Amino acid sequence: MDLLETAAIFAAGIAAGGINTIVGSGSLITFPTMVALGFPPVVANVSNNIGLVPGSVTGAYGYRAELKGQRDRLLRLGTASLTGALAGAALLLGLPDRAFQFIVPALIVIALVLVVVQPRVQKWVLDRREHHRPHGGPWLWAGVLAAGVYGGYFGAAQGIVLIALLGIALDDDLQRINAAKNVLSAVVNGSAAVLFIGMQIFAGTRIDWTAVLLIAVGSTIGGLLGAKVGRRIPPLALRGVIVVVGLVALVTMLT
């Protein structure tokens, strides 16, 4: 890896860490960058996942003020993220490399539709709910589980999916929902990373540790910067950013 390639991966890590904290879809920067530099797709995917874990943690830390009062909610939903992430990571190691090219675009479209209609759907759900459920109920748990499977498998746009699900099911501020999304994304990325590292030790799964280090340092910086920016964005503007990033992600996957 020469100096230019090193700089490209590091810069992609910074951008991905920031975008993941604000919205999600940061993997659509780091993953294509690594593939363009000649990394095999599965090696790029696995190395990228591990490298983005520190960025997920710093992004969640940056939203610590918005996380106050969400401990019980996150413990409950975190079990869904953990379970789903391990299942998704196992699918990544077992399914053909090209499978996600057919799955991811459809998931991104669904997520964007949910984000756009979220305010009206949320109002409709809350108006018909007999009792307030601070944890969102069993349907949200199942949705977070499915998002965890997706995140463990590929990860790009999992933040968009989570924001859409949490925004519809929870009666809460969008910034607090984004904070919860960052924690759940960190659980997904961290759980999948542990499985990938274990598979390298016991089954020889290939991981490029130089790329992991570059993305890890870059995403750590990006996560902190993203939290500072994202916490100041009004809800309507944040929703607009989510839609724009999602559309860019969709175009990227289809071209």
Rank of each mutant, 00 (worst) to 15 (best):
A12D: 02
G59S: 03
V115S: 05
L126A: 13
L74T: 09
L140N: 03
V229K: 10
V241G: 04
A99I: 10
L170W: 01
A80T: 01
P138R: 09
P105R: 01
F196R: 10
M34G: 04
I50D: 01
V53D: 03
G218H: 10
F102A: 14
E5W: 09
G152Y: 00
I163E: 09
S47T: 14
G51D: 12
P234I: 05
G26W: 01
L95P: 15
V57F: 15
G38M: 08
V248L: 14
D2L: 08
G222C: 06
A60F: 11
A65E: 15
S47C: 11
E5Y: 08
G51T: 03
P41V: 09
G246W: 01
A142Y: 04
G24K: 03
V116Y: 12
D173F: 08
E5C: 10
L82H: 01
Q158L: 09
V57T: 04
A146S: 07
Y61I: 14
A203N: 13
A90G: 14
V245D: 05
L3R: 13
V144I: 12
A99Q: 12
V217Y: 12
V217N: 04
V53L: 12
G230Q: 13
G38H: 06
V245F: 06
M253F: 10
G51M: 08
L224H: 15
